[in-house]
């Protein structure tokens, strides 16, 4: 089925969207004094208590912020990078007191763990992996999956973390004969991992055995789609992909996310929901994040748009604030907050 045959989510006019769906909670004013490259939320343990902290990253500094009260944040740790710039934060669920970051110039060259010494609480870095890293994702149970190399010499590795940030266990997954572009853990089926490839396939692995279970070619209209989430229910796989290259049409508007349903037994797939912008909104997908059933995207127009995948329509639009376009959007891993970053480095925290 092509994109044109997919059911389109309702496209309410911008005026009908409830702005109350997003409430500003607090703000980090230009925390790094330079352009932000990423933001994330994680748990950090101090004096025996776990606190929900914010991690901000610019090219040469990663900072950890702890809450002073419901409105204010205090910078408690800073890691500096003088040789290779920071590209992104890699959140790893179930891990406390450890931040993973990817470093490189355009291409990812290193993955590092950032942590603090237990003795003097000083910041330190541990090199976890180096090479031609194509894709990576933090997984449940303190694991990180990464792929290095291209199709003929591709290596897909799972690292499990020890408390001190070092890798305590390494396991290889069977590589497909296509270069992996993105990974997604499958909610609802423990030990299933999904990947998308550069030539339009979806692959599934068994994380426990390392087996490559299935390679499924999907319609060419999903060319080089990035997978943001996967759910397994009643024998079917529901996969959320973004559509950075999708063409705008009069009937469908500007598609940003798409929900595919795949039967992993037969490798047949169909698009079931197309998340397009409300009427009157322009822009294409720039970057985005999906958590449970809500999908958020920064658009080329500088606006952030949010869709509820269960309701099937756009539920909130966040236009640029103070004439500053949005450049980052992330769901918090610690609560139902949305972290929104501006080009000048300001970070805003909204309750959704």
């Amino acid at each position: 089925h092509s994109t044109e045959q997919t059911e389109t989510a309702d496209r309410p006019a911008c005026d009908n969207l409830n702005p109350g769906n997003l409430q500003l909670v607090s703000e980090l004013k230009n925390p790094s004094s330079s352009c932000s490259v990423d933001v994330s939320a994680m748990w950090w343990e101090r004096a025996g208590a776990k606190e929900p902290c914010i991690v901000t990253a610019c090219e040469d500094v990663v900072s950890l912020w702890k809450p002073l009260n419901s409105l204010q944040w205090e910078k408690v740790h800073t890691w500096h990078f003088t040789e290779v710039p920071v590209l992104q934060i890699v959140p790893v669920p179930d891990v406390y007191n450890l931040i993973c970051v990817a470093l490189g110039s355009l291409e990812i060259r290193e993955i590092r763990a950032l942590l603090c010494s237990s003795g003097d609480d000083s910041e330190k870095q541990v090199l976890l992996k180096s090479g031609d890293i194509k894709a990576m994702l933090g997984l449940t149970k303190r694991r990180l999956v990464s792929s290095t190399g291209t199709f003929c010499n591709q290596q897909i590795q799972i690292m499990t973390f020890a408390d001190d940030g070092s890798s305590k266990d390494e396991q290889l997954l069977m590589p497909p004969d296509e270069t992996v572009l993105t990974f997604a853990e499958v909610q609802g089926t423990q030990e299933a991992l999904l990947g998308t490839t550069t030539v339009n396939s979806i692959v599934i692995w068994n994380l426990k055995t390392g087996q490559l279970l299935k390679k499924m070619h999907i319609d060419d209209s999903y060319q080089a789609s990035v997978c943001h989430g996967a759910y397994s229910e009643k024998g079917l796989l529901f996969v959320v992909v973004s559509q950075p290259c999708a063409k705008e049409s009069q009937a469908l508007g500007s598609p940003v996310f798409q929900l595919l349903v795949i039967n992993p037994k037969t490798a047949q797939s169909v698009g079931v929901l197309l998340c397009s912008l409300p009427q009157g909104q322009a822009g294409r997908f720039l970057e985005g994040d999906v958590k449970d059933h809500v999908a958020a995207a920064v658009l080329t127009s500088g606006t952030i748009a949010i869709w509820d995948l269960l309701l099937g329509h756009c539920t909130a639009l966040l236009p640029p604030v103070s004439d500053q376009s949005w450049s980052l959007v992330k769901w918090s891993g610690t609560d139902s907050h949305l972290l929104a970053g501006q080009k000048d480095g300001n970070i805003f925290i909204y309750r959704y």
């Binding site: 089926t189 068994n206 087996q211 397994s232 079917l236 349903v261 039967n263 037994k265 047949q268 797939s269």
Partner: peptide, 23 residues
């Protein structure tokens, strides 16, 4: 949207594919 076109569905797809795939 009908899922009839997707072929027979198995609730145990993960276990079945794991037993069929090469180790």
């Amino acid at each position: 949207c009908s899922t009839a076109d997707l072929g027979p569905i198995s609730l145990n797809w993960f276990e079945e594919l794991s037993s069929e795939a090469p180790p």
